Amino acid sequence: MTALGFLYPGHSADDDYPRIEQLLGSDIRVDLVHTDLGEERHRIDTTAAGDAAGRLAAEVQELRHAGADAVVWASTSGGFVRGWDGAQDQVRTLAQAAGMPASSTSFGFVHAVRELRVRRVAVGAAYPEDVAQLFAQFLRSDGVDVVSVHASGGTAAAAGGWGEAELLALARASDHPDAEALLLPGTDLRTAAHIPALEKELGKPVLTANQVTVWEALRLADRRVNAPELGALFTREPIVQV
């Protein structure tokens, strides 16, 4: 049994995780600990202040006691708003406190882009423009060519209520003909049931935050899982080791 641990802010799309667990197989367990959402996460000031590494380190103890093999901080903006170095420090503190491999959704996107062997991506974010641009900057820090950024604005609570129609609309508005993949970074987007439809619509891989978060935990645990229902990312082997 491989146990994957996640620190998830709020409840917007937390039901993606048991759905993904069902698609992965009976020997993988997904454990979720909810963190304090605090103020609206789609603002730079509250996002940077609301997920201090010390608080995450305290909350990870529940996952450690549950026997998790790896832990991922499941907030994309909660990592990248700190910049590359700040996000690395956050993950390092989390790993030290947990006593296990640790990462964040932000780095999960970077590693997933490498896994797909693509360089040019488009970003579709249910963020304000300034936050979306910080995500693009984070990706560029690793050499990813971000060819377009679309920010739909809105709140985490609103994005959590979106269905397939809204996700498809975001994907269409965000795609770019030069992009080899589309990235949808918000962990408040409920996407686990819709990735095949999104990829069919665009004709290219689509990386979504909760999908990438679970894949990143599997990478840390050195597990390979073939789950086509979760998109192109879960049909490639081997998982990149970095």
Rank of each mutant, 00 (worst) to 15 (best):
W73S: 10
A102G: 11
R224A: 12
R219L: 02
D175S: 13
A158S: 11
S174C: 09
L134V: 12
A209F: 04
S103V: 09
G5L: 12
I195N: 04
V147P: 09
W162C: 00
D89C: 04
L23I: 02
A53E: 10
L139R: 01
L4E: 04
A173S: 10
V242F: 14
A136L: 01
V118N: 07
V212R: 02
S75V: 05
Q211I: 15
L218P: 00
V30L: 13
H34A: 06
H111E: 13
R19V: 11
D188K: 00
V147Y: 11
D175W: 00
S26Y: 07
S26A: 15
T235G: 14
L139Y: 11
E229H: 11
D142K: 09
R29L: 12
D222C: 07
H11V: 14
G67T: 12
G161W: 05
E59S: 13
A169Q: 13
A53Y: 03
V71I: 08
V240I: 14
P128T: 08
W215G: 02
Q211N: 12
W84C: 05
A165M: 05
L63V: 11
R82P: 01
F135P: 00
D31W: 01
A159E: 11
R172L: 13
L218K: 03
G10W: 10
P177G: 01
D51W: 11
D14P: 00
M100I: 07
V225P: 08
G67A: 11
G231L: 08
P238F: 08
T213W: 01
